[in-house]
Write a protein that binds this DNA or RNA. Structure first.
Lengths: 250, 250
DNA sequence: ATAATAGTGTCTCTCAGACACTATACC
DNA sequence: GGTATAGTGTCTGAGAGACACTATTAT
């Protein structure tokens, strides 16, 4: 009884004492946007081992005095120059062999940003060929367990990029998370500019859900949600009747 | 252009090289059950600093060759003797000051287990007063932002136990997660024995959601979900008409 | 018989989906 | 006027909530 308890406490203490064998802790950040009806994510080409030459999500190790959110913000800013972007923790990946070199536990994050803002910020940094915005295609999980997630496609100009480490799994989990949360809250607005039309909002939803939505009921649901308000202005430069511009509130 | 890129790569390398300052990585496991219409969680009393004497979620450091899920399983088994229990990652907590002693990043997990099975397993270990099953009470977030989460109450026999570290925050997040996921999938069945009645299932839902549910539509929804099948048997030893026993499928 | 809960049948209300129609921009 | 999309009005069907009623057990 007491003997068991103290035995277990000794067990935990032995783990505490093994400070010589701490894992490294990193963050990986999936910087997500919607472009031409598709989800897209920022990828970087690895310039050193492991997985040199392969494409991967931007990442970095967590500083000893740095918060996890802070490390994710830093990685986001270093690749895009962006600040004050929606950032959310996705999942923590800790398989012992996920990094071939050494034990690395990676806390996955995702950032949501309007496409125009992302392009503008990345242009300002004059990024070269080691940074790409790749389209991602995550099929819906089928009914049968063997096609649980289906093949996740990550491609840029019709070229399929195989991702390093477990980053394909991270993207699959990310898109599932987006699909689950989009109906419930403020998530989709983060992928749009300050002022947007209902059609743009629907495009974002359709890109994430990867299926067409009913126009009428989508309008009703969005307007009833009270998460958006009309600005009174209308879009310009379109070849048809201009739509009302809305903005996200609260 | 290229200069910026290589400068950034050097920055990441400097983080990689700082292996002398890696944070410790731990798991905390909230072992959850439903008892008499309330959510309850296993707490342990800390026998050493920091927060000595305070109550906390069971936890332990992650071994250098151990997966995160494996560490959570180990902590679960060490406190309850239970194996093959539903276990899911909750969130990773990494505030630099969350542990007063040193930098500890903690991956939160939760386990769901039937109350009878939990009690039986813990009795077999003959646990003493340093382990308790405390009722947890998480109010719904109010409309106003200042009462975002409300006070989370963790009590045992009407005595409120203040938890160590950020474990109160972990429980608040956990209950939010349970509330969000319970309608969507197999989660609630994990809190029930192999065979259960619809009334028991509704009790679990009501405990998690902390509000009464409509009996008729709850029955319809559950039976239509095709996640459960009647066994043909009925409950025994009740003072009223016995209900059909169902089992979880797939 | 009485108490207490299990389980069924039915009505209504709400909301998503579908369709038809009108409105307004550029060509 | 033609074309393309924005935005509105209305019908319908599915499902949640509510209520009434019947069924079955122990005491």
């Amino acid at each position: 009884m007491k003997a068991h308890q103290s035995e277990e406490e000794r067990f935990l203490e032995s783990y505490d004492a093994s400070q010589f064998a701490r894992p490294s802790v990193a963050v990986d950040v999936a910087i997500v946007t919607v472009h031409r009806g598709c989800l897209a994510v920022v990828l970087v080409q690895r310039v050193k081992q492991p997985a040199k030459g392969h494409w991967a999500l931007p990442g970095g190790f967590v500083g000893i005095e740095e918060s996890l959110d802070g490390a994710a913000s830093r990685v986001l800013a270093s690749k895009t120059g962006l600040q004050d972007i929606y950032l959310e923790q996705l999942y923590t990946f800790g398989a012992p062999d996920r990094d071939p070199r050494t034990r690395v536990i990676s806390v996955g994050y995702f950032a949501l940003v309007d496409h125009a803002r992302l392009l503008k910020a990345m242009d300002a940094l004059a990024h070269d060929e080691t940074v790409r915005l790749a389209r991602i295609d995550v099929p819906w999980p089928g009914e049968k367990p063997e096609q649980a997630h289906g093949p996740v496609v990550t491609q840029w100009q019709d070229e399929d990029l195989g991702l390093a480490f477990d980053h394909t799994d991270q993207l699959a989990l990310l898109v599932q998370r987006l699909r689950g949360k989009i109906d419930y809250g403020a998530l989709s607005f983060q992928l749009l500019p300050e002022r947007f039309t209902l059609r743009q909002l629907q495009d974002v939803h359709e890109a994430i859900l990867a299926r067409p939505l009913n126009k009428d009921s989508f309008r009703r649901r969005m307007l009833a949600s009270k998460l958006m308000a009309p600005t009174g202005d209308r879009e310009e430069g379109v070849v048809h009747r201009p739509a009302e511009l809305y903005r996200f509130i609260r």
